[in-house]
Design a protein around this nucleic acid. Structure first.
Lengths: 163, 163
DNA sequence: TTGGAATGTCAACAAGACTGACTTAAAACA
DNA sequence: TGTTTTAAGTCAGTCTTGTTGACATTCCAA
């Protein structure tokens, strides 16, 4: 691919460059989660609640097993989170219209408003970063991230794009 | 927002683009940690052990409070992890030569060998990703990540570069 | 010499992940 | 029809990793 048989530098593949990438991921992920975390704390929720709400908002009416695949956790773990979100009237379950074993998940108005608050905070940081570096760097950013995903999750990610 | 002052497109700043970036971070981070996690499991360690070993390897002789700043956890949390690493002879403490309150941290040979194993696995995935996308995308990737860091952590990150 | 910094430790707690076993309801199948 | 499989939920127990708060030790520096 870009691997350079033609004389251009492969310096970007040195151990030092890779190490920098690893550390950049570590530090950036902290920034990535910091703003929503502060908001969640006020409501006594955690990152797991945020993730669930994010994807329920993204795929309204998703059933539980689909959400489990996206999140990559066990149903016991998801269930604890969903239970509190339902109790607090942020999420509602609807019995599947075709297959009545399924439970379809939706955000309520309150849920949508909290999700909006969280995604606004998180997007704000990302927008600033995007703005600082410009469209070409953003394209590169996404390409590297996509190439780092497990193949199954990459497919999941791409499905979300065109849904 | 979308208003285009200079003529070039600002489509890369749409809500949809930002949402994609958020989801890409989420899915990519899963891939980023997956390989080391599998190795750690065999040794009954966790991600926290990996992180500590990574930065002790990166900054040999660092003292505890410096490591606490890098990792962003409480000393109680770090201490539990360090204690097991020291018990298992992966890390050694040396009393600070100037200030004898300080404890300077080093990996042992065994510690270095496990760290090597972990970073090899993690680097392998990153190298493949880098190779697939090429140097320009890698540069963009790093720029966005840097722009997403909290300012203090950005400084920490840059200090690690030239140490 | 005293105050404060660096470190470590004990205890208690909570979030969020896991495994394993089991139930219920409903669909699918034979 | 009867059996099996699937989707979801639940109960119980465990583990890692984070948190607070309180307190002890050591020792540098004003």
């Amino acid at each position: 691919m870009q691997n350079d048989r033609t004389g251009e530098s492969l310096l970007f593949l040195t151990d030092e460059q890779l190490r920098q990438g690893i550390e950049a991921m570590f530090f950036a992920y902290r920034g990535f989660t910091a703003d929503p975390d502060r908001i969640l704390e006020k409501y006594k929720y955690g990152r797991a609640h945020h993730r669930a709400m994010h994807f329920i908002n993204r795929v309204p009416g998703t059933n539980v097993s689909n959400l489990l695949n996206i999140l990559g956790v066990t149903k016991q773990s998801l269930n604890r989170v969903l239970r509190t979100l339902i109790e607090d009237n942020l999420v509602i379950l609807k019995v599947g219209p075709k297959d009545r074993r399924e439970r379809h998940l939706y955000l309520t108005d309150i849920g949508r408003s909290l999700e909006k608050q969280l995604s606004t905070a998180q997007s704000h940081r990302m927008r600033e970063a995007y703005r600082q570096v410009g469209p070409d760097s953003v394209a590169g950013f996404k390409q590297v991230l996509e190439a780092m995903m497990d193949p199954k999750l990459h497919i999941t990610y791409k499905k979300l794009r065109n849904s």
